[in-house]
């Protein structure tokens, strides 16, 4: 229990430091967050840019005379209330955008992670156990190549091949515009179809890295003395493969699994932008493009929360599955 309390305090400190850092960075970025809006106001209303800038600032709730410290205080107190800020571009609260987009991202990420982890573990263990054979060579070589492909290149490739050329997958979005969201079979099927592109673009490179990591861990565990002793005791190969090799090889990966999910919240930006998929990453890309600093800060904060929560979950899960950690 003491361990949990220590962990919570530590992660809270990390949170405050990370969020403060984000605030300072975003507020010191070159350019005026109100400028973009001011330009469009000036054009629409045919007025001077200085005037438009003032209107834009008041619309966005920015007081140029306010000190950084006061703004920081406001930001933190809002954060404590669970308010992640305001998006000038979408003219709505960041919380709104998140509640709309986060489910899509979680949907795609969890599918991608599950698929890549399960397949990666299987292929990695297979490669290690078939050491020196063609099977190992193929798995390792293909994984090494795939691992080097960035997800956004793969995304463009998938979009081009499956959506544009073969027309098997939709071009973008989370579901067809002409279908009302419902729990009908058709809608769910279409939803999966739309998620397939971004999911594969994320899952395939990850699958390769899980495979390589698992292969490495497995061959390491296979060298251990307790494997040899299990063989000496006459245990069957299938029992050794499962209880002695796989269980020990997969442990370190479970921790990276949770942390990886946390990081993916942010790393998903380009893939979602390419597929026009309305998740967190899509809005993240948009916020950068239009200099929506409020949205940017809010989404950054969300990612920090995601990574911290994932770290905590990883620690916790690890202590559940590895007896060596629980006892410390």
């Amino acid at each position: 229990m003491n361990y949990v309390i220590n962990r919570v305090i530590y992660l809270l400190a990390v949170f405050v430091i990370a969020v403060s850092g984000i605030f300072v960075l975003v507020n010191n970025m070159p350019g005026d967050p109100a400028y973009g809006l001011a330009v469009s106001i000036a054009q629409q209303r045919n007025m001077q840019i200085e005037q438009a800038l003032e209107i834009a600032r008041s619309m966005m709730g920015i007081d140029p005379d306010e000190s950084l410290l006061t703004r920081y205080g406001k930001f933190m107190s809002n954060l404590l209330k669970g308010n992640l800020g305001y998006s000038a571009f979408y003219n709505t609260s960041v919380n709104d955008i998140i509640s709309k987009s986060l489910p899509w991202t979680i949907f795609v990420i969890s599918l991608a992670t599950l698929l890549s982890f399960v397949v990666g573990i299987f292929l990695g263990a297979l490669a290690a156990q078939k050491r020196g054979t063609v099977i190992e060579w193929i798995i390792s070589t293909v994984s090494s190549i795939i691992q080097a492909i960035p997800p956004f290149i793969l995304a463009v490739l998938i979009l081009f091949v499956f959506s544009v050329t073969l027309r098997l997958l939709p071009l973008g979005g989370a579901y067809p515009v002409d279908v009302e969201p419902s729990f009908s079979f058709e809608f769910i099927y279409k939803m999966f179809l739309h998620a397939l592109g971004p999911m594969l673009a994320t899952a395939i490179p990850q699958m390769a890295s899980w495979t390589l990591a698992m292969r490495g861990n497995t061959s390491q565990v296979m060298e251990e003395d307790f494997i040899r002793f299990a063989e000496i005791r006459g245990l069957r190969d299938s029992v050794i493969a499962k209880k002695y090799i796989r269980n020990n090889a997969v442990l370190p990966l479970v921790a990276s699994l949770a942390i990886g999910v946390g990081y993916m919240l942010g790393g998903h930006t380009l893939v979602e932008s390419i597929f026009n998929y309305p998740g967190i990453g899509f809005y993240f890309g948009k916020a950068i493009a239009v200099r929506d600093f409020g949205l940017l800060t809010g989404l950054f904060t969300l990612i920090v929360i995601g990574v911290i929560a994932a770290t905590f979950i990883a620690d916790f899960v690890y202590s559940l599955i590895d007896p060596r950690v629980k006892l410390k």
């Binding site: 003395d225 307790f226 005791r233 006459g234 245990l235 209880k243 007896p323």
Partner: peptide
């Protein structure tokens, strides 16, 4: 190398159990 000959993620009882099951 008796020090590393037991599976670190298994209780001692399970080592006995695996052994009789193997035979």
């Amino acid at each position: 190398a008796a020090q590393q000959s037991l599976n670190p993620t298994m209780k001692i009882i399970d080592h006995f159990k695996d052994t009789i099951e193997a035979h």
